[in-house]
Structure formats: structure tokens, C-alpha cells
Amino acid sequence: MAGNVLLWLGCVYRKNLVAEKESILSVFRAAGVDFETLDDEGCCYLPIFLAGKTDMAKERADELESVLSGYRMIVTPCPACYRMFNQIYPEELGKNLRPEVLHTSQFFLRLMKEGKLAPRKEVNMKIMYHDPCELGRHSGVYDEPRELISLIPGLDLFKQRYEREKAICCGGGGLLSAFFPSLAAKVATRKLEEEDRVPDDLEAIVTGCPQCISNIRAGIRYLKNKQLRMNLKVINMAQLIEMSLGR
């Protein structure tokens, strides 16, 4: 296994977003990536850490280190896992992982630049990119997802009022959606209506975080505008790439 790429999926994709997860796997395959997934992956423990259980997160990091160090690169579609391995490990838990850890948006962009992924088919859709807090403000990854999106032909990109450092949280972060899901959903509704001010003809919100996908979907159910409520989709980068690969 040494030398391989590990695709670390994260709890939300594994358990709740199965179709979206399949898209990720299929993009990996389409690019001919030699990768593995773990049968008994388990949690990265960022949620456990955020709940205040630092000791448990530390123990889990010790345990995971031996598993993860066997790989050359870890790619994850989950910004929480990404931040856990890249930032919380060294800064809070005193652990430096050997392998490089990438978010799927960074990895897919590399594949595109290397010519291994060639999105050609026009995707005629009006979309908005949502910066997940864990990926943007907390990890500083703003450019790669945008560059990736710019390489997909045909898209009509709607720019919301606040982006990047100033982006508005969807409400799914900080465990709010586990503590008080109905409030988290209301946050998402307010974000779309009052902060982002999404237009009536927006077709999809593209984002790089499974937690945001779930929570924004929950928020869409309460939108005042019926058309949006019915039609607005929330998808990940892999789904967008898949459309452009012509599947």
C-alpha cells in the first residue's frame, strides 16, 4: 500500500451522501488514479474535538497516525477531515502527518492540469460557489475550487454578496447541526435569501463540503421562493466534473 493515494471519505459521505460519494469515486476512476479507500475508516474525530473532548481526539490521532503514514497522499472530500489532519493535528494535538493531505478540489484541479481529467462537455447551468468555513476561513483554500469551476465549460457563475474571507456560514458548522438542527437549517435559509441573495433562476449551489451540502439542502426547504425551493440543487465538485465528462 505504501506509495498509494488514500481517499479518505469522512463520516458524512460514507453514511449520508451516498450518491455524491459515488460521483467522487467515479471521478477518481475516470482519471485513472491508483487509490485506496479504507473499509473501517471511522471518524477523524474533528467533531469529537469540537465537542470539547480533546483527550479522545488526541488518542484517536495516535491510533490513526500509523494507518495514515503508510500512504503517500491523503485526499479527502471533507473539509472537516482536511482541517483536522492539516491544522488541528499539528497545532492542537502535536502531530505532524507525513503524507500530504489534499482536499478533493485541490486534487481534481491537479488532475485537470495534468490532463488526466478533461472536462469538455458544456454544462449549461447557473451556479453559485459556496465557501465552506472549514475549507475557506479556517484552511485558506479559496482559489482551487474557483479555478476548478472556471475550467468547466458552459457554466454561468452567480457571485453572491459575500465571498472568500467574508463568506457567510451555512449554519452547518461548529456542530450546530448536531445540537440544534432546526436552527442550523434556518441559518441556511437566511443565508441564501438575505446574505447571498440568490437569484430566482439559480440552479445549483456547488460546494466542497458534505456538511454544507446537507445543511443547505435542509435550508432550501424553507425558502420563500417556490421555484427555488423546488429546483435548487446542492452538489459537490465531483458531480459537476462528472456532468462535464459527459456521463
Binding site: 476561513r137 458548522g173 461548529g174 450546530l176 445540537f179 436552527l183
Partner: peptide, 12 residues
Amino acid sequence: AYTCTMCGRCVE
């Protein structure tokens, strides 16, 4: 504390 989404926007 448990209802803060820890999004960090206020820090900005």
C-alpha cells in the same frame, strides 16, 4: 458556546 458555528466571520 455550543450554538456558535465557529465560522470565524466575526474575527474578520
